[in-house]
Computed example of a mutant assay.
Amino acid sequence: MNPPPPVTSDPNEAVTPETLRKDYEAGATVDELVATSGLSYGTVLNRLHEAGTEMRTSWQTRRMRQDPQARRRLAAHLRTLYEKHGATLTELAAGAGETRRSARRLLIEAGGTVRTTQQTLRIRAAARAAERHKLALSLRARYEAGATVPELATDCNYSPATVYRLLHQTGTPMRPQHRHGPARRDGKRP
């Protein structure tokens, strides 16, 4: 059986289940109620249950205490990163200083839908292909402006074979290769 409610600093106000519930629903945690009421943890929980209080999880309490506008902005930002840039939940969590679970929760709050791993891999592959095509077009423009394949390879830190492959993928008309062997006496190449 629970002990009678202790008297607070105001002798007319006892710590009743209803006052505990009111404070809890205003955002106080059970630990804070224990500290302010002088009751044990179990007694506070019992009185909250007795008053019909719907209990929160710790993350619900944190969310309740956060600035709702800031939370909505963060959720919208994470959704943009996730949907437009193909970020993973792990990357979202690292960028926001959250856990994967909370990043997922924020994404769903912002109206996003969570992708499967295969969907993420397809998005990433498409993004890499688009970047590679963009690079190939850039190489083509520079090649047609007079740059040589070895110069392009050095600038891009690719092998000449990779540069040739990228140029061929964009349909670049290739210049004839020069023979750099020794010249013959009659001025003709061997």
Rank of each mutant, 00 (worst) to 15 (best):
R21M: 03
R56N: 02
G27P: 02
S40A: 13
L20A: 06
T16K: 04
D10V: 07
E25N: 11
G27Y: 01
R47W: 08
G42Y: 01
R56V: 00
A51L: 08
L48N: 05
A35V: 06
D10L: 14
P6E: 00
G52Y: 04
P4N: 08
S40R: 14
P5K: 01
P5W: 00
V7Q: 13
G52M: 00
R56S: 10
A35E: 15
T19D: 03
Y41D: 12
G42I: 00
A35D: 15
P5I: 04
A35N: 13
E50C: 06
R21Q: 14
T57C: 09
L33V: 09
N46W: 02
V44L: 05
E32A: 15
D31P: 03
D23M: 08
A14N: 06
K22D: 09
T36L: 09
Y41I: 10
P5S: 11
D23V: 05
S40H: 14
S9C: 06
S37H: 12
V15T: 05
P3F: 05
A51M: 02
E13D: 07
L45R: 14
M55A: 10
E50V: 01
Y24A: 02
V30P: 03
T36W: 05
N2W: 13
G42V: 12
E32F: 07
D23P: 03
G38K: 11
G38R: 10
T43S: 15
K22L: 10
E25A: 05
R47D: 04
E32I: 11
G38Q: 14
S9D: 12
G52R: 04
V15N: 08
Y24K: 00
R21W: 00
K22E: 15
V15A: 13
L39I: 02
D10N: 14
N46T: 02
V7D: 05
Y24G: 00
V15H: 03
E25Y: 02
D10A: 10
T16C: 02
T8L: 14
A26K: 12
A35H: 10
T19K: 07
A26W: 04
T19N: 09
E25H: 07
Y24D: 01
P3W: 08
E50Y: 05
M1I: 09
T16Y: 06
K22A: 11
G52A: 03
S9W: 03
P6Y: 04
A26V: 04
D23E: 14
M1S: 14
E32L: 11
P3V: 10
A28F: 10
R47E: 09
E18H: 07
M1F: 07
V15M: 12
R56Q: 05
T8Q: 13
N46V: 01
V7K: 13
H49P: 00
H49G: 06
V7A: 14
Y41E: 14
L39F: 02
E54R: 12
H49R: 15
E13L: 12
M55R: 13
P4E: 13
T36A: 13
D31R: 11
E13A: 15
T8P: 06
T29A: 11
V34S: 12
Y41M: 05
E32P: 09
L45D: 01
T19W: 12
V7Y: 09
L45T: 02
N46S: 10
N46Q: 04
A28Y: 08
P4C: 05
P11C: 01
D10Q: 07
E32V: 10
L33W: 08
P11L: 00
P6R: 15
R56L: 11
A14V: 14
